[in-house]
């Protein structure tokens, strides 16, 4: 995999994760369990596509090979995507959808908090705008984890099953990541080394409140979304998302 400089790698991780999470939310149009939830899910999706655009515009400028943010989204293949494995997994039932959203939010919000203090003003600016949105996302998703975990017998079972199934994709969120050391020291992402601990703490608190059992520690599964080594799911997500750009090369939309 071609590596860019550390800051650009971070921008791609942020942009791609937000983009793929939003793309999965787009699949839910017309299928939410309540009408109010249609509006809510699309709000989160809109926020995330907006954030992805901001991160990827900056990434494109730094890569500086003539590509735009749109080119990065619609014309890179799966091996070039740096998103977390968690977000490319299918929506499943509403318990799975919310489990994924919450586990992502619990990583996303503290990360954005740190980036607000970045020595890179552009990053600090985007993070400051995004944090307001993501604070609301985690408020909403953690409420749903509690409602479903501590709701009915059926909802508890479904929520627990969703967590058990998705848990091995949290390896990336719960463990230290090499790139973070330099980003931390260089003050691009001050404090980012503590991110995995904070994620663990947030998740442990909410799961306990939700009367859910935290699955065994996720083991390394020898994949790494952030290194461009994905599950089979991402290829299909991209095939759908990139259809028009691929079918009509160089067309303007």
């Amino acid at each position: 995999m071609k590596r860019f400089d550390d800051t650009t790698e971070l921008l791609l991780q942020l942009g791609d994760s937000a983009m793929i999470q939003a793309q999965r939310l787009c699949e839910l149009v017309g299928g939410a369990p309540a009408l109010e939830e249609e509006v809510a899910l699309m709000n989160v999706g809109l926020d995330l596509v907006g954030q992805a655009r901001n991160w990827l515009e900056y990434a494109a400028e730094r890569i500086d090979d003539g590509r735009t943010a749109d080119d990065l989204v619609f014309l890179r293949d799966q091996g070039e995507y740096r998103n977390l494995l968690l977000v490319e997994q299918p929506n499943g039932d509403f318990a799975m959808t919310m489990a994924k959203q919450f586990l992502f939010d619990a990583w996303h919000k503290p990360l954005l908090e740190k980036l607000c203090n970045s020595s890179d003003e552009r990053i600090a600016g985007i993070a400051a705008k995004s944090i307001k949105e993501s604070s609301y996302h985690i408020r909403r998703s953690s409420e749903w984890i509690k409602r479903l975990g501590d709701g009915t017998h059926e909802s508890h079972e479904r929520m627990q099953r969703a967590l058990d199934q998705i848990w091995h994709f949290t390896f990336e969120l719960a463990n230290p990541y090499e790139l973070f050391n330099t980003l931390d020291t260089d003050n691009i992402a001050p404090g980012i080394k503590a991110l995995c601990k904070e994620w663990q703490a947030i998740v442990a608190t909410i799961l306990a409140e939700a009367t859910l059992t935290q699955p065994e520690t996720a083991e390394n599964n020898y994949l790494s979304g952030r290194e461009g080594v994905h599950t089979e799911n991402l290829g299909f997500v991209l095939a759908e998302m990139q259809f028009l750009q691929r079918a009509y090369p160089n067309a303007s939309w």
Partner: peptide
């Protein structure tokens, strides 16, 4: 939940 739904619906 009503507060959240109201926020999402009426302050778009």
């Amino acid at each position: 939940m009503a507060i959240e739904n109201a926020r999402d619906l009426y302050t778009r």
